[in-house]
């Protein structure tokens, strides 16, 4: 079970990122919870400066853009 957080102040890119991850996780049959984190303090915690950013199991893996499909698949299948 992966815990995935999408950090961002709620702009359209962040929403799209969260939706994409959710969709691909379902397609691959990977169990994952996708949470959208809009609290600015969270960005400070993970030291994120460009949103949307993706945190998987408390580890920052991506920031600044809507991630590529390949990237998302890699994250979901790793580990």
């Amino acid at each position: 079970m992966k815990e995935i957080k999408v950090l961002g102040s709620g702009c359209s890119k962040c929403t799209k990122t969260a939706e994409a991850i959710q969709k691909i996780a379902e397609e691959l049959g990977v169990e994952a919870t996708v949470i959208k984190e809009t609290n600015p303090q969270a960005m400070l915690t993970y030291k994120v400066m460009s949103t949307p950013a993706v945190v998987i199991d408390e580890k920052l893996v991506h920031g600044g853009s809507i991630p590529h499909r390949n990237q998302i698949e890699k994250w979901l299948t790793a580990g």
Binding site: S9, C11, K13, C14, P40, M43, M49, S50, T51, A53
Partner: peptide, 13 residues
């Protein structure tokens, strides 16, 4: 380049 919705994280960073 940065989208205006990034101004908060940029400010904090």
């Amino acid at each position: 380049p940065f989208c205006s919705c990034s101004s908060i994280p940029v400010f904090l960073g």
